[in-house]
Structures are given as C-alpha cells and as structure tokens.
C-alpha cells in the first residue's frame, strides 16, 4: 500500500498542536468529518477516528506528559483509496513492542494501555520510529 509519489492527496493537514486534549479533540473531529465527507464507509471512518484518537491522545498524555511547552506534530493525507497519518511527540519515547498486553486477564480491568493495541487493530499498517516518538498509520478505504 505504498503511496504513489505522483498521487495527489484529496485532503491534507500539517499542524503542530500544544499538549492540550481539547485542541486535539477539535482537530480529530475535523479529520473525521473530512473522511466522512469523502465518502468513506462507517467502518473505515470509525477505524480512522479510533486510531487518530489513540495516537494523538497517547502523544499528549504519555509522550509529552501534558507539558504545555511541548507540541505534537500531526500530518494527515487522505488519498482516493487510502489514509495516512503521522503523529510525532517530543517525549522520551517508548518501545511499542514491550507494552503490557491489555487483553491478559491481569490487565483487563486496568484503565489504560489499550492505545497501541487499538491502533494496530484498526489500521492496516502501523510503523513506530524515532524511539517510539513517531507513529505512521495507514488504512485502505
């Protein structure tokens, strides 16, 4: 699902936001509304919404630890047949392959730790780099 470099995005957004969940919420609403307007079906729209919500909120809460002096960089491109988003924070990073599995019985009732799992479940491709500070997520329409 590599994007053709010649392909022009139907919609894109490149923005740095402060570590404020209210600002993030408005941005995510805008992305989801656009996905809906571009005719993505209910399931794909839900998937984009879930992944954006988890990735951006994780960056603010766990990456930047809500530090108001730190920002989250968000790049979104919506093509005819796929969605790509890159979310990058200014935190210390983490190892996404070494987080406790929230599906285990002992973790099931914990009120955190589902973000990485949900992003991977709802997106078709997920790549973490920059020591976990940046995630790139792709979804086919």
């Amino acid at each position: 699902m590599k994007s053709n470099q010649e392909e022009i995005a139907r919609w894109e957004l490149h923005q740095e936001i402060p570590s404020d969940t209210r600002v993030a919420c408005e941005l995510i609403r805008s992305v989801v509304s656009t996905v809906e307007e571009l005719g993505w079906d209910q399931a794909a729209t839900f998937a984009v919404h879930m992944a954006m919500e988890e990735a951006v909120m994780n960056s603010i809460k766990h990456g930047n630890r809500r530090d108001p002096s730190k920002f989250v960089k968000i790049d979104v491109q919506i093509f005819a047949e796929h969605f790509v988003a890159t979310i990058c924070d200014e935190g210390e990073g983490f190892d996404p392959d070494n987080v406790p599995d929230p599906r285990c019985d002992e973790n099931l009732e914990l009120c955190s730790g589902r973000g990485v799992l949900l992003i991977r479940q709802f997106m078709d491709e997920v790549v973490y780099d920059q020591q976990g500070r940046r995630v790139t997520m792709r979804k086919r329409k």
Partner: peptide, 17 residues
Amino acid sequence: LRPEVRDLFGFTHLDSL
C-alpha cells in the same frame, strides 16, 4: 452496540469483562 463498537470490545477482550 453497532458492529464497530462491538469490535472494539472484542479486540480488547473486554467482551469477557
């Protein structure tokens, strides 16, 4: 639950809780 929300509970195994 609509199917996507039901999936959310399934993926996280919260449908066992």
